[in-house]
């Protein structure tokens, strides 16, 4: 199961990378420069870090049949909070850095609770509930930065998104850590089982004694944390915070990454590794379009077409209409197995 789900995304990713090789013979080359590993592949990983993080959180939300439209705003807010905390800091003391991290995580947990309470306790549909934060969050971010692009002159802060560890960009380690945490939570505790069960059949889950409310809350909080850390990386990377443009379109890219990765918008089974590959596809696409020299704006058109194709492929109606005969036979067989109940 797992293998077949990951197969096509990996193929697509490889094709995109190979196209690059065609234009740039050195695309796959990784060199050591100034003691760091550099190269296009490293670059994709590094630049894709915030999207990877946000997508990991979004995967769990979508698995519960929800969606979190607020992540872009959370990125902006987190960046603003982080930058504001260290704005006055100078020198090498690490205290402001950790204060900033603490504040960012606190505010992202807060946003997650906000969304999660609206969805799980008040029963607002996820699209609508998270829309509120999507609108208001950016306003709050701008309020924090006072509408300016806030610049940071504090070196330790820039380490998060721009520093290196073991010759690799530090942000890659953050992504890896969050991925490990997500995998641990979902595969080594019962979280994953509960998420998939609630996302597939909420009523049957309730009758099996599962409290879906806390699971929903948890999922939105996790998504908030992921977005918050993503925002920290973005802001640290450019040593500034821009309430208006930071994290713009991220919710859409993240949803796209999740869907490409094989997780259905109808909830249920989720594929963290699929999402990772989905996010890498989006990032490589962006990089490719830049490197080939097409207007970067065409990216949007390509993304639109990819979204449509993926959704159409997931639609049973589409499959029935297009792959007609072949598929009809298969569903027939399937319903035979299931035993159609007539009532």
């Amino acid at each position: 199961m797992m293998k077949s789900k990951l197969f096509w995304p990996i193929v697509v990713l490889l094709i995109i990378l190979l196209i690059n090789l065609f234009f740039d013979k050195n695309f796959f080359t990784i060199e050591v420069k100034n003691g760091y590993l550099t190269g296009s592949l490293i670059d994709i990983l590094n630049r894709g870090a915030p999207l990877l993080l946000v997508s990991i959180g979004m995967t769990l939300v979508i698995a519960t049949k929800g969606v979190d439209l607020g992540v872009g705003s959370v990125i902006a807010m987190a960046g603003a909070v982080g930058a504001m905390t260290v704005s006055g800091a100078n020198g090498d003391s690490l205290v402001p850095l950790f204060t900033a991290i603490a504040f960012v995580i606190a505010i992202s947990i807060l946003t997650g609770i906000w969304n999660g309470v609206l969805v799980s306790r008040i029963g607002v549909q996820p699209i609508v509930a998270t829309l509120i934060l999507m609108v208001a969050g950016r306003g709050i971010a701008q309020l924090i930065t006072d509408g300016q692009i806030m610049t940071v002159y504090y070196d330790p802060y820039t380490f998060i998104g721009g520093g290196h560890l073991l010759m690799l960009p530090f942000s890659i380690f953050i992504v890896a850590a969050m991925l490990v945490i997500a995998s641990f939570l979902t595969r080594k505790t019962a979280m994953g089982l509960f998420i998939e069960s609630v996302g597939t059949n909420p009523e049957a889950s309730r009758l099996s004694g599962i409290n879906s409310k806390n699971i929903l809350l948890m999922v939105y909080v996790f998504s908030g944390i992921c977005a918050g850390i993503g925002g920290l990386i973005l802001s640290s990377n450019v040593a500034s915070a821009d309430g208006n443009n930071a994290g713009l379109w991220y919710e859409l890219d993240a949803i796209l990454a999740v869907v490409i990765g094989g997780t259905s918008l109808n909830g249920g089974r989720f594929y963290l590794m699929g999402t990772v590959i989905g996010a890498l596809i989006i990032q490589s696409l962006t990089t490719t379009i830049y490197s080939i020299g097409i207007a970067p704006e065409i990216n949007l058109v390509v993304k639109a077409i990819v979204v449509l194709i993926v959704c159409l492929l997931q639609s049973p109606e589409f499959r029935k209409k297009v792959f007609g005969v072949f598929n009809m036979k298969q569903t027939e067989k399937k319903s035979k197995n299931e035993g159609v109940s007539i009532s």
């Binding site: 089982l193 998939e196 069960s197 597939t200 059949n201 009523e203 049957a204 889950s205 099996s208 599962i210």
Partner: peptide, 17 residues
């Protein structure tokens, strides 16, 4: 509608409760 969690395996459905 109230019993099986269709997307999950036999094993997962069994241990759910």
């Amino acid at each position: 509608t109230e019993g099986i969690i269709g997307d999950l395996t036999i094993r997962e459905n069994m241990i759910l409760a």
